[in-house]
Design a binder for these strands. Structure first.
Lengths: 230, 230
DNA sequence: CCCGCAAATCTTGTCGACAAACTTTATGCA
DNA sequence: TGCATAAAGTTTGTCGACAAGATTTGCGGG
């Protein structure tokens, strides 16, 4: 935690941004929790200026909310509108996979397969947290292959927000299935993308998204705690 | 231009952000043009700090690009990927209109109809520039009625980027048609939204988007200048 | 005349400080 | 005691200044 190394010029804001982003998505910083500029400046051993820049960027992505003349707080998870989240997530799964089928190159497929291998390892190991981030990386690679710079950032934001939502619940233990449905579904998606079969990609992506949404909803339903907004 | 009024605390960055955003979308600041912090600070009679905050926000939306240790420049219009723009624009037209049909309230309809009236006035007056912004406002209202906070900002960004693209070309003179297709299409959309007819909304939105895309492409094709990237 | 290197200039990234606005604590009055 | 008001204490928004990095200018050699 004590990083006494001197940072490169311009690396300050980046460091704070990356660190805070990760802590917010991991719920190390809980929704509603105030984020003190001076405290962060002290923690990262830098001035308030780069800290502030990081906060402005995080606010632009909706991860924090800067209340004018008041403290910055970690944004709440929008539970009343979870439907909107699932709707957008499913749509992005579909369109990015479709576009990947259309526009991917061999290099893209290489990256996608590598991500899938890493994802499979996380699933085999039963590491749910790693599985979530690796699933994100896998689909981010597919989105990149689709070459639509408007969809990709939104999709990544949605996948990250999904990580944040899932962190709220206890991860269920994995039943070590082999082959695991997630893995086989990913493999099917890769095959369909490589074959440039757009309708099939659309169907597979929708099924994949539906399964994930269903899983999340099941976890929420299983958890009797009602989300309370402060 | 000489605003000697003293600004409210916190209004500095907002003023710079709004002004620059508008100037970028109107091409008063051309793509690739460097944006000097000190110059802006001088122009708005404030320190570089709020100027920098505005630039960071604009960079977050992709309107400017901050080169590390180098000047900030107005982002280029991504001509090689115009297809991606049209694809995303059309999709957002469709999904926001669909969702509006599903989730709108009477208050939403009120706002939408008001925006449509303003839009119609711009069309009648043959004011192409106003027509573009009013069309944006109209569809932004529909997106708001759809109540999906993930789609709405993306859609607004796309509509604004469309304004920027259209500014590149000479606006064709309006043939004063009455009733004008754009107006009647909007009216049809309003009726379909009010009737909560989702499939009809989807079809109307797609047709509307296709018409607009076609119009933009026609303007680009009519203009023989090849977009040159510096 | 052209090319490469060094000095000068410019722009950005960061810092510490100060003032405005908000929050909390203390005080006075009913 | 309860409440409104005032004082003290935080926290943010803004400022001017300085240093690191990049760009331009100037100079010398080929």
């Amino acid at each position: 935690m004590t990083d006494t190394e001197e940072r490169k010029r311009g690396g300050g804001a980046r460091l704070v941004y990356d660190t805070l982003r990760d802590e917010i998505l991991d719920l190390a910083l809980q929704p509603g929790e105030p984020v003190d500029e001076a405290g962060l400046a002290d923690r990262f051993a830098m001035s308030r200026t780069p800290v502030r820049e990081a906060l402005v960027r995080l606010a632009g992505e909706g991860l924090v909310t800067m209340l004018p003349n008041r403290s910055t707080v970690v944004s709440q998870i929008d539970f009343p509108n979870l439907y909107a989240f699932f709707d957008a997530l499913t749509l992005m799964y579909r369109v990015t996979t479709r576009l990947a089928a259309e526009f991917h190159t061999d290099a893209d497929l290489h990256i996608i397969r590598a991500r899938q291998a890493t994802f499979a390892k996380a699933v085999m190991a039963g590491d749910t947290a790693a599985m979530i981030t690796r699933n994100r990386d896998f689909h981010a690679a597919i989105a990149e292959a689709g070459r639509n710079p408007y969809y990709t950032p939104l999709f990544i934001r949605l996948l990250d927000e999904g990580r944040r939502i899932l962190r709220l619940y206890y991860y269920p233990a994995f039943a070590p299935q082999d082959p695991h449905p997630y893995i086989t579904e990913h493999e099917a998606i890769i095959t369909a993308v490589a074959a440039r079969d757009i309708p099939l990609c659309d169907r597979l992506a929708k099924d994949h998204a539906d399964r994930i949404v269903q899983q999340i909803q099941a976890m929420i339903a299983a958890d009797r705690r009602q989300p309370i907004t402060l």
